[in-house]
Write a protein that binds this DNA or RNA. Structure first.
Lengths: 339, 339
DNA sequence: ACCATCAATTGAACCGGTTCACACCCGCCT
DNA sequence: AGGCGGGTGTGAACCGGTTCAATTGATGGT
């Protein structure tokens, strides 16, 4: 593609015998007669004109970048980030991806640096949704958070996960199978106060006659293997492990194998997120799936059509669907460890 | 962050008692006395000024976006994309991620649409490196390709994979173990003419007394399972499978399990890329690892410091390192299938 | 025939930087 | 003393759009 200067608005205006202003309006269909608009559009098409996004950004005050910020450690979120970025591209938006590696400090730092950058919006998978620094972004920057409905920042545009349903269903499933003590491995979120998901699990468990031991785990597979091993080596070894994330579940598989426990005979394992590998491990992982594309679309449309007709009140909730596979079963010995 | 208008260059100029021009030069250290520069910088710092990237972009002609284009289907490349985007962020660049889903048509289409967007550069993981459409991007847009050294576009800034070494080492490893017939599962690349990696594998195999059967596979785990099953069900079943990508290897595990073949007893499996899961599957996958961070850094620096002192001549080569784990072994029955 | 109304169109300012070409001052060389 | 050169600083143009306020012209009601 040599030479061939980029066409400017002025070129189109000249060709159409109109002023720059009229041309600009016509192209965007904001003013001018139908006939003029059509003519100008045709002309632009013919001359291969497309507005310079930068100039447009400067004049209109919106940059066309959105930041994807938050905890992007595990494979699931990584995939989500890529999907988000692609969906944004479809809207002619570019993205700035910033993994904060599970640290609220880094999250704050990134958010602060985003004020200097000029982003139109932020899609957050927050490490600490309750932190005050979320208020630090400039007023006109829209924030869409994606995350657990239990911990979400209340008055914000958000895409929520119905984890209450997920946790309830999971525990019910395990209770139905005859488990009595289950371990819950949740990803490390250093500061979230109250840890509602865990509290919920415990109270739900109680009502089903389940003893739920909560433990936190890094979401890397190896870290999770450690955390799981730790949980399994303690006294009162749980007969089932509910892992809030497939990566953690894979770590649990590893720990079980290392300890000579068979899955699901000695230990039932329940995952979350239905990663591509879930149906490949042996035994196939019972887990919860999401419609990731729908989640991504919801987040992007919340960003682009703020509070519009599409979304009811700025909040959409997604419910995970239970996918029964082969990693859960009746415990062989309901009360005591096998060996 | 209410009110508090963004500071403009004019504000700093006023505060410093200088003209806009002088201030601009001073801030970037291009002109003016040391003293003035220091004074202006201090002032900017104090007033919390940072240049508006958009205005800068318009004036300077560089947008600060780079596109990450290519085949981003598998987990490894997805991870790479996220890492690239983060590395770009560190240079104050934003990214546009476009997966072309293995299709050269989409690749061409994306590239064409990038001409309208205004990107400073493209980081490509090309589906078809030999296609002519790579020449279609505007002259001043720098392209950095990441990919197989065998198929790379010659005269381009690129980050290469020494797959010749990888393939050689892999085949040697299998030959040493006593395998005679090995299957090679390569990701589907519809149009790459010649398919050099496969040809290379066959000629290398020949020289080691190996019969190498090449077959292509989608890089999704499930697609790979099918492709592998197909290969294993034919006559002259190979005793080893070399999978060009861990995802494909996982598919092969699945196929082996479905066919009742034990790994590595009945079938040795060799992966590529050392994904996080490689050491988690059972048996642990023997594979090749990369220094992903180094690759990412090389790509980004090739983009930001074009042909500069850092890179020799615009080409950097990375060599995969062999990671022996447990998925390869001597074949139980060197010549005939077990059952 | 006359004025109000409204749509189409326009010139100019503006967004916030970068960069060009020129003015200026001071010191140094011949 | 006159001239030249290098380092500082400046006004203005420019990047390529958007948007405001004002102008023009046609329509319509009385």
């Amino acid at each position: 593609m040599t030479g061939a200067q980029r066409k400017t608005l002025q070129d189109i205006a000249d060709a159409a015998g109109l002023s720059k202003a009229a041309t600009s309006y016509a192209l965007r269909g904001l003013r001018g007669s139908e006939a003029t608009q059509a003519r100008v559009r045709a002309l632009a098409e013919e001359l291969g004109y497309s507005a310079d996004p930068i100039a447009r950004a400067l004049a209109s005050g919106r940059s066309g970048n959105v930041a994807i910020v938050g905890s992007l450690r595990d494979l699931w979120r990584q995939g989500l980030a890529v999907m988000l970025s692609e969906a944004l591209r479809a809207q002619d938006l570019s993205s700035i991806i910033a993994d904060v590696d599970g640290s609220p400090q880094r999250e704050e730092e990134v958010l602060r640096s985003l004020a200097a950058q000029r982003v139109d919006g932020v899609i957050a998978l927050p490490v600490d949704p309750s932190a005050s620094y979320w208020a630090d972004v400039p007023d006109q920057t829209l924030i869409v958070s994606i995350g657990d409905a239990l911990t979400a920042r209340p008055a914000s545009e958000s895409v929520l996960f119905d984890n209450e349903y997920g946790v309830g269903t999971a525990l019910q499933h395990l209770a139905d199978l005859g488990h009595r003590t289950v371990g819950l491995l949740a990803p490390t979120l250093p500061t979230t106060p109250g840890r509602p998901a865990e509290l919920l699990a415990q109270s739900l468990g109680d009502s089903m006659g389940l003893t739920v031991t909560v433990s936190s785990s890094p979401s890397s597979v190896h870290g999770a293997a450690h955390a799981a091993a730790h949980l399994l080596e303690g006294k009162d070894r749980p007969t089932a492990l509910f892992c809030l994330g497939d990566s953690i579940a894979f770590g649990a598989y590893r720990a079980a194998r290392d300890l000579g426990l068979s899955v699901p005979g000695d230990l039932s394992i329940l995952g979350f997120d239905d990663s591509e590998l879930a149906s490949l491990v042996n035994p196939e992982l019972t887990t919860f799936g999401w419609d990731e594309q729908a989640i991504v679309d919801a987040a992007v449309s919340a960003l682009t059509s703020p509070d519009g007709t599409g979304t009811a009140s700025g909040q959409v909730m997604f419910r995970p669907v239970f996918i029964a596979r082969a990693s859960t079963a009746r415990p062989l010995t309901p009360s005591a460890p096998t060996r």
